[in-house]
Design a protein around this nucleic acid. Structure first.
Lengths: 367, 367
DNA sequence: TGTTAGCACTCTTCCTCGTTGAGTGCTAAC
DNA sequence: GTTAGCACTCAACGAGGAAGAGTGCTAACA
């Protein structure tokens, strides 16, 4: 019942390919002419009726051609995922050139990746910064600035840096800054953000000692960072690309989709909700598989990266359901492995960060 | 010739007010009925013919009512600007509450202001961060991080902080870090970014001395900051609000305008191109006064703020030409003066940093 | 039994065309 | 200077009809 015959698969595939191209319902005659099956339109019609009954395609109205359903796309995409991905050398080169020129600021690199990806695929993209709350604190430093302010700098694993300007009641001397820096590091270094709790803060407050006004400013800044770490930073790029597609040709749907793109919480939920595909670091949600009503006409392809072990962020491409899955899967797959490569050569061994990333870390999915 | 009679002014105003409300061409009968002038539609028609000849209103087609031209709006707006602005206490309170909760990070405050403004006015907003290239360097610090990296922190006037993670060929000791920090500050402190030139760099390189590999990493980071300072950071908020308005009801214009909103260079040009209105810190560009073709159906209202003297950024509201100028002018005007106030009390006299972190602004997505 | 030709039928899309109504400009009267 | 009246214009709307794409079904064929 769930098994399709070889011929049905071919017809389904033909319908999907044609529909991806034209955005118009596909008729039996078109398939009959275009596909190498050599069957008459009448035969195709019979098969189509079966495919429709099985839920793989649907008819917008009687006497129109067929369009793939989410279930149909799903089958298509899953079979696509099994095929071997071919690294695109041109794309890779563009990315590497970009990465090379960048200073090693993770957030700006990620922004660029989002932009690049949206230019390469012509779809909107969303990238999220690594979540900081599971990240270990690597270094803290208090830097006296002038009579009334100082900076608390917090560096986490993966060299992500956060600053807080603190107002201080009286000037802090360089020596005092060093002393406070030492105490801070002694208590907090190596802890994950989410491990910082009240008892630790209490002990810290005690050890920091004397000047309550300065100490509470410090603690406030730390607390702000910890709270902020729960938040996820997100960047979108190329959102207007979605308006290229005829399925968003009417204002109301265009509006709805643009609004979702800019609403952070919903966007994050949509990305997080993507289903894990067996084995590979690629999650795909197709059309009605999206929970969000406004996203039912979109598909989301998401991949994740890790920095310094376990704190992860994501890179997603969003397109109409009728998107070019093959292209996006390979482009995104190549990009993420290049990027992850960079992160790793960057963060551990001491090799010049130039090494050509030839083999992607994740082998093609089995099952 | 350029002088309008009192009656003409009243009619023009009536046309504009009606059009702002309905977005439909205004007929003579409407004015005759609605306005307190007590004139028949025929008389209004005669006056309208004159106003049209003078260029203040126009007809979309024969036998339609009149709509204001950019020239008409300009007259209206200029007269509006002369009237006294009434501070809106409610708005002010919202802003102050927001500013209070924020830590003193200029960029996040500005982002919030943009969001807030777009919620309050229901129009898209654009804020730009202060340009750094005229900003004086206040402090530099080199912080050794681990065996392979260090952080160069650069603080400018107005306490804007930039970090660069630098890869180093060998570990830097704390003492060496301090020494390099001292040299950096000696040469660069007090300079404006744009004043950093080759001779200064050369002297700096000489004084930094010994280890060429480390020094060149440092210099690269400084150069990157200087280059970056030329760039302007920009945030947009509420862009989809523009789609509420019937003038962007067709996809092509909606698309065009959304695209401009996300194209940084064009957006900055549009903001910079706004004309200065006499005396006040408010610049308004109306419809066809915009250079950019895609912006001819929009009006831009811009105001500027200054941080630490002369480095300035801007806050803009963008709406359809048919926007509620009165409301935006007063909202934006109030907001900028509150904000500027905050910046000044922040940067000179000493008040304790009022910490009131009770509720984070946006909780991450649930479930 | 699977495949195909033929045919009647269903819908959408597009064009045309008349109607309606808002609004104008002009003229003549007040 | 103001107003009533009237002929005229033009966009918007909807009905009606033709065109065309595509279907399902039936009957014939290999």
């Amino acid at each position: 019942m769930d098994e399709l015959s070889e011929r049905q698969m071919q017809i389904l595939q033909a319908i999907i390919l044609n529909y991806l191209e034209t955005a118009e319902p596909v008729g039996s005659r078109t398939i009959s002419r275009r596909s190498p099956l050599g069957l008459s339109s009448a035969t195709i019609r019979n098969e189509m009726a079966d495919l429709e009954e099985l839920g793989f395609i649907q008819q917008p109205h009687t006497s129109a051609g067929r369009i793939p359903s989410s279930k149909g796309y799903r089958l298509y995409v899953d079979s696509l995922l099994q095929s071997q991905r071919v690294p695109d050398e041109a794309d890779s080169r563009v990315l590497r050139a970009m990465l090379k020129n960048k200073t090693h600021q993770l957030d700006s690199v990620l922004k660029e990746i989002g932009e690049l990806l949206s230019v390469m695929t012509r779809y909107p993209t969303v990238v999220t910064m690594p979540r900081l709350n599971r990240t270990k604190l690597k270094h803290l430093q208090l830097i006296p600035l002038d009579e009334k302010s100082a900076i608390l700098m917090i560096v986490t694993d993966g060299n992500i840096v956060r600053n807080h300007v603190i107002k201080v009641a009286r000037p802090i001397s360089a020596d005092e800054g060093d002393r406070l820096t030492k105490v801070l590091n002694k208590h907090l270094q190596g802890l994950a953000m989410e491990e910082i709790n009240l008892p630790i803060i209490q002990k810290l407050r005690h050890d920091l000692g004397s000047d309550q006004e300065i100490v509470s400013g410090l603690l406030d800044a730390i607390q702000a960072t910890v709270e902020y770490a729960d938040d996820v930073e997100m960047y979108t790029a190329g959102t207007t690309n979605i308006l290229d597609f005829p399925e968003f040709n009417d204002i109301s749907s265009a509006r709805a989709v643009m609004e979702v793109f800019h609403r952070k919480d919903e966007m994050l939920a949509a990305i997080r909700g993507t289903q894990t595909a067996g084995g590979r670091n690629l999650r795909i949600t197709i059309g009605s598989e999206n929970e969000l009503a406004a996203m039912q006409d979109c598909s989301v392809i998401t991949t994740t990266y890790t920095v310094g072990g376990n704190n992860i962020g994501s890179i997603s491409v969003i397109g109409p359901v009728r998107m070019d899955y093959g292209k996006v899967i390979s482009t995104l797959g190549n990009m993420i492995s290049d990027f992850q490569n960079m992160l790793e050569t960057e963060n551990s061994p001491d090799r010049p960060p130039d090494s050509g990333g030839d083999s992607p870390p994740d082998p093609p999915g089995t099952d």
